[in-house]
Amino acid sequence: MNWFEKTASIVGIVAHLWPLLPASAQGVLAVPPPTPSSQQASQQASPMVESTRVHERLTPRALGGTTRSFNGPAGKPVELWVPDRVRSGDAFDVVVHFHGAAWLPEQAVAALGSRTVAVVLNLGAGSGIYDRSFADPAAFDSLLVTVTREVAVVTGRPSRMDRVALVGFSAGHGAVRAILREPRHLARVDAVLLLDGMHTSYVPEGQVLAAGGMIDSMNLVSLTTFARAAARGEKRMLIAHSEIFPGTYASTTETADWTITALGLRRTPVLRWGPRGMQQLSEVHARHFRVLGFAGTTAPDHIDQLHAMPELLKRLLSR
């Protein structure tokens, strides 16, 4: 395991557990005491105490519909939520969310008010496990086939899957980039939402840009290819990121900048409120491609991105 996966796994663990904790516990865990090892390898969100923004949090609530579960990649459970309105039609859309407690993306899908089902996978810590789990294109094929079958069980009749959207929070982006490497999956997926989750290594490993390092673009190629299609109006893509600087691997700001430059675009400075008390600082907009840059270098700022999913998903998919 290289530095990128080792360090990403720590942030991934925090990101996976955070939404499940009460606010009081989040306040404590957001400020871990520094240790010699953590000071040498700056690999997390800043431990600074931050009270500038509200950091509003959603809470679980009853949504109705039907929940099912089945085994997916690596034998991990896939959680499926089918809203009641799916029963009224022969076709449905699907949002596949990688990394994070299922209730939150289910709320985001429910807020769409459409015949869209939510599929949630949690495969472990670090983007590497997500990437490896979908390195074989058959894994995504199997997932879609099984979702279609399970929805048919719920509705009591054959159902056809229409539009497919992928959402990657934090480490979950590893699955998205792996899926999009396969040309027929790139063609099949209609929309992508990345929530503070587009990372890669430095070259040489661990050497930041300011010290002469470069971005390892290997993990960004498939995502940038999709971004280019969105900028042409053929797909839909929204990248939201914080200002967190991991130190040992490329930040979401740096990877977004790489993609923006590759598309020949530039950021526009803005200053406006976003969801959950977030503060937006920059924006890129080209047809159906958007990048939203938000303030914040702390762990709560990272989790803000996940709790902003209802608003950001609706913005991504609105026609």
Rank of each mutant, 00 (worst) to 15 (best):
M161R: 14
S9M: 11
P32A: 02
R115G: 12
A286F: 04
Q279I: 11
G75T: 06
R53I: 00
W258F: 11
G156H: 04
L306H: 01
R228E: 09
A62L: 11
V117S: 10
G100H: 06
M48F: 13
L166C: 09
S46D: 13
A230M: 07
P105E: 08
A230P: 06
A108F: 10
S24R: 09
G296C: 00
L112F: 00
W81G: 08
A171S: 14
A211V: 02
F140T: 04
R87W: 00
S69D: 00
L312S: 00
R315Y: 07
R163F: 02
I244Q: 04
P19K: 05
F169A: 09
L312V: 07
V95L: 10
S46V: 02
R184T: 10
A178N: 05
S170I: 05
D301I: 01
Y249T: 05
M198P: 02
R115N: 13
S242D: 04
Q305G: 02
S318G: 10
A135P: 03
P275I: 06
A62C: 00
W273T: 12
T268A: 13
A165P: 08
V31D: 04
V151N: 03
A295Y: 05
H55S: 07
R87L: 09
L80S: 03
V147C: 01
R287W: 05
L17W: 15
Q40S: 13
L29S: 06
G75F: 10
L194N: 05
A262I: 02
